[in-house]
Each structure stands twice: as structure tokens, then as C-alpha cells.
């Protein structure tokens, strides 16, 4: 699974430019799906059909993980060939300093900063620029509207893994691995790899409308409270998949939450509850689709989210796959 994770995180895919990521996923699921389609917004919708089982209610279940990552977009090219940019999604300016970004054609740029007047001044994005190493404007090869994202190699530290875009390629990897491991299920399960989550859960909004699920589980990253002087949050790396209770955008459906808890307890998997004061996931869009969807969220605890070096625990990842497999293999009653 680590190879898949490495490939997924190193692939380029700022919001609205998810094609390369989608190709990696399509390749990895070949032969394991009953139906594969791509909708108008670029969501990859993969159906694994359920086997009718006597006495078991077949449910229509949607799993969602987003393919897009945060990035930057060129807003102006000056006479000397320096690029001004704005953010795609929640980019935290300090993480940009000293970083390199990559454009869709693989070309690299480095982030520079205007003269610092006050030494303790917080770095601002409008005081930064991208330098693509061009001697003049004529050789920049970039235009307004070009998107770029962080570039950083995947690193395997053994127990812990480090990469850019774990948000939410780790969710994509968990979904792929779950599909590959799911021998039979009594349910129709839609594995949906969504687009444009970082700019307002856009892909989940439309794919949920199209799929029309009864039950949904979004798989995404969450923050932790286990680093020095971190904000109060009872989520730690390595303590198991986090079962969401609430974030800024939604309250998890109690039935789905309990389904996750009872499955984890039955399989003796570690888990923790998550209350997140900032951010939300595809779950919030799916929840209010049409006449409402019973929606929960399975979160992978992740440190340094939205930086080029996000960190997850490999056991948390493996346990997340086992938890989903356990949930999908059995009847559901919410």
C-alpha cells in the first residue's frame, strides 16, 4: 500500500486539475469495479455492486475522498518574469517560504519574498512571488491562470509517513485499498473520488446528487492535538482512525457514527472520537444532498495539515481500511 500512497501523494493535482490523480486511481482499481464513470465536474465514480443476501437490506452507500490538493494560481506576470499568485484553497502563507512549487507541465518555481521591513512581520502571500528562473518575461513560459502545487517527495519513516497532499490522497489510498480488499458486500458501494473539495466541497455536492446514496462516509484527514503546545484536541497520531462527532461544517449522523464504533469494537480496532473546531470535509455537502443523507466521517489523524510535509501514522491508515472493510461486509442498521 505504501507504493500506492507514494505515487498518489507525488502526483500533481491542485483543485480543478485532478486529471493526473484520477488516472493513477483508475489504473490501480482496474478489474475490481462493476462500473466506472466520470461526471461533469471530474469526479471519479466507481461502483462495486452488492450480492443479494437473504434477510439483509441492501443499502446504497457512498464513500468519498477528494483527489484535489491545495495550491497556488498565477495572477500576474511582471516585466522581469516574476509571478504573483493567489491561493487555491487554504494555503497558510508561512508554509510557502522556502518551498518549491510545480506546474502542470512539471516545471518548478521557487517562492521568494519582498524585502522584510519589520523582522517579526507575518509573511503575507501578496508580498511573495514565484521565480521560475527565467532571465526575462519572454522566457517565462507561464501565463495568468496557471496552477501549481507544492512539490515534495514522499518519505517513509517506518511507522510514520511524510508527504505533501496527504490531504486527501491518503483518503484516496484508503478507498482504493478498501475496494481491492472488498471481496463481497451485501450493499451497492460507490467509491467516489471527488474534485474541488479544497475550494468548497464542490465535487461532493454534485456527485452526491448524482449517486443519490442513503448512507455516506467521507474519508479525509483531521488535525491532532499531540504536538508541543498544540490547541486542545483529543486526537493523536497512532491512536487509531478518528470517528468524527463534529467539525465546523457538520455534525456526524449519530447512526453512522455508532455503526463505525460498533464495527471497530467488534474487530477490536483502536479508534478515537474527533471534535474539530476548524475545517470540514466532503461530508458536509453530502449530508444535505437532496432530502438528506445519513453521513459520517472517518478521519485519518494528520499533523501539519496544509503544509508540504504532512505526517500520518501507517497503523492508523491500515486500521482505517480494516474498519471500512468491516463496515461494508456486514448488514447496516442505523
Amino acid at each position: 500500500m505504501k507504493e500506492l500512497i507514494a505515487e498518489l501523494t507525488e502526483t500533481w493535482g491542485p483543485s480543478g486539475n485532478e486529471d493526473a490523480v484520477r488516472k493513477v486511481i483508475e489504473k490501480s482499481i482496474t478489474g475490481h469495479a462493476d462500473e466506472v464513470r466520470v461526471d461533469a465536474l471530474g469526479n471519479l465514480i466507481v461502483l462495486k455492486k452488492g450480492n443479494v443476501k437473504k434477510g439483509v437490506d441492501k443499502r446504497r452507500i457512498m464513500l468519498a475522498a477528494h483527489m484535489d490538493e491545495i495550491g497556488v494560481i498565477v495572477s500576474h506576470v511582471d516585466e522581469k518574469g516574476f509571478l504573483r499568485f493567489s491561493a487555491i484553497g487554504g494555503v497558510f502563507p508561512p508554509t510557502l517560504l522556502g518551498s518549491r512549487v510545480q506546474f502542470g507541465d512539471g516545471k518548478i518555481g521557487v517562492i521568494g519574498r519582498e524585502r522584510v521591513v519589520k523582522p517579526d512581520e507575518a509573511p503575507r502571500m501578496d508580498k511573495m512571488f514565484i521565480d521560475v528562473g527565467s532571465p526575462d518575461k519572454g522566457h517565462v513560459g507561464r501565463r495568468v491562470g496557471d496552477a501549481a502545487c507544492f512539490t515534495r517527495p514522499f518519505v517513509d519513516l517506518g511507522q510514520r509517513l511524510v508527504a505533501k497532499a496527504f490531504d486527501d490522497r491518503i483518503g484516496c489510498a484508503v478507498l482504493v485499498q478498501t475496494l481491492l480488499g472488498l471481496k463481497t458486500t451485501p450493499h451497492d458501494v460507490y467509491f467516489v473520488f471527488t474534485t474541488q473539495e479544497e475550494v468548497g466541497v464542490r465535487g461532493a455536492t454534485t456527485s452526491a446528487f448524482g449517486v443519490e446514496p442513503e448512507i455516506a462516509v467521507a474519508v479525509d484527514v483531521t488535525l491532532t492535538g499531540d504536538t508541543p503546545e498544540a490547541p486542545t484536541m483529543a486526537v493523536a497520531l497512532g491512536a487509531g482512525p478518528a470517528i468524527k462527532v463534529k467539525d465546523r461544517g457538520m455534525l456526524a449522523h449519530v447512526g453512522v457514527k455508532n455503526w463505525m464504533v460498533s464495527t471497530a469494537e467488534r474487530l477490536k480496532l483502536p479508534y478515537q472520537f474527533e471534535v474539530l473546531d476548524a475545517g470540514s470535509t466532503d461530508g458536509m455537502a453530502i449530508q444535505t444532498s437532496r432530502a438528506g443523507v445519513a453521513t459520517g466521517v472517518l478521519s485519518i489523524p494528520t499533523r501539519y495539515v496544509h503544509s508540504p510535509s504532512e505526517m500520518v501514522d501507517y497503523d492508523d491508515v491500515r486500521h482505517s481500511v480494516e474498519l471500512l472493510l468491516g463496515m461494508l461486509s456486514s448488514p447496516v442498521s442505523l
Binding site: 455534525l251 458536509m284 444535505t288 432530502a291 438528506g292
Partner: peptide, 9 residues
């Protein structure tokens, strides 16, 4: 928490 019940009902 975001007018959700009215939207879906």
C-alpha cells in the same frame, strides 16, 4: 448548525 433540516426536509 447551518439550516440543514429545513434544506433537506
Amino acid at each position: 448548525t447551518g439550516l440543514k433540516g429545513a434544506l433537506t426536509s
